[in-house]
Write a protein that binds this DNA or RNA. Structure first.
Lengths: 224, 224
DNA sequence: CTGTGTGAACCTTTTCACAGCG
DNA sequence: CGCTGTGAAAAGGTTCACACAG
């Protein structure tokens, strides 16, 4: 049965995708000293409509106060709990090319619940190279050992396209159950493994579609 | 009527987001010498269901042959036309940090319809530095001139978070109407400007949510 | 009087099922 | 037969509008 709906028993997928945005906004609000905030403020900070914010938060069995809003610290803790940010997640990064190195150096992961515990590359020439403080490139041969020894369940795939599927297979065999894939290819993975795709060229193509329509001579015959 | 400008008169948004995937798959199929392909093959190659593939292609007024499938070359041309890949789009990249440099060096843009015509950074120390063959970092002061002189309508924003909104404002003022934003902040832009957001840390947080549920003890064993 | 929480309406997207063409 | 194209149904998501709590 294909009924393994993405939602299962938890939060709606669309809501899950927005919780990180709320968390980010709440962290900022907290830094500014706000003790409470309204759904309108969260809407403003995240680009989501306020009705949508309220609906999302209501899924958490939310505890807003009518006439006042939400307690920033409390809501922050609530969301952190919901999306598993009470622990740090160990992540392995595969592929130390330009993109891999950029991701390894990105400070935004640590502050948002993920820790890159290893950077791996297939090229022996790169092994040993320091990518960032405390992280040196390791051999792809070590992949299985790294995943097992360092309790890794999430991988970032930043290899060349042609290697992506093979690496994904190895990751899954070694116990990884979530992959963030930057290679422009649809990975085949077994049920129970989550893949999220980041395809930058595709994003530009989507923007190009809209650009094309904007410069189209007259398609804009909406009510005048 | 609150004009929901998302669809207007063109293709459904969800379809537009998948056309680049089909295009990629068709290019590969063509390289292998296949003259035709079925919706099942495209489904396999893209991870989209075959019914969904057919529905998407039918929006293009598609020309498949029943019992046979689609003509690969023809469909490729059809999709390229629909998403504006008959021309190259000039793109400006702002921010030449780790990520900006990685994006500038990414070969996948050129082969998929976008050309980075300038890399710009606010740091005078970086100006003049060669990021890739034929591309040197230019000063952020040149931004307006670059956008106008090089017919740029799409920008990639890879600046630090705190600078993103200000840069976006300048981009819009200079005539940019599409932004691919890597800074983890919700940009405020006027109507008519499209923003697509890439938030890598948020992607990991979404994966973490699912990881948390997987390791959760309560699991309804319905698989059969 | 303010702003949450929520049923109901509305819209988008996906899936199903099958008629019909080659 | 195989595979497209497509109405119809189902699922998923967003917006509306307002009762109601503080």
């Amino acid at each position: 049965m294909t009924g393994a709906s993405t939602t299962d028993r938890g939060l709606p997928n669309a809501t899950v995708a927005r919780l990180p945005l709320y968390l980010r906004a709440l962290t900022q609000l907290r830094a500014t000293g706000s003790a409470t905030c309204s759904s309108d403020q969260l809407a403003e900070a995240t680009g989501v409509s306020s009705a949508n914010v309220r609906k999302d938060l209501s899924h958490l069995g939310s505890h807003g106060t009518r006439g006042v809003g939400y307690d920033v610290a409390h809501l922050q803790a609530e969301i952190a709990q919901a999306i598993g940010q009470t622990q740090e997640w160990n992540v392995v990064l595969i592929g130390a090319g330009h993109l891999g190195k950029a991701l390894a150096a990105y400070p935004g992961f640590a502050s948002r619940g993920s820790r890159i515990v290893a950077v791996v590359d297939a090229d022996p020439e790169r092994v040993g190279e320091r990518v960032v403080d405390g992280l040196a490139i390791e051999s792809a041969d070590e992949l299985d050992a790294i995943i097992r020894d360092r309790a890794v369940s999430i991988a970032i795939l930043a290899t060349p396209t042609h290697a992506a599927q093979e690496v994904a297979d190895r990751l899954v065999a070694a116990g990884v159950t979530s992959i963030l894939n930057f290679a422009p290819v649809a990975l085949r993975v077994p049920d129970g493994v989550d893949v999220r795709q980041v395809d930058v060229a595709a994003e530009l193509q989507i923007l190009a579609y809209h650009e094309q329509r904007k410069s189209s001579p007259r398609e804009e015959a909406v009510s005048g």
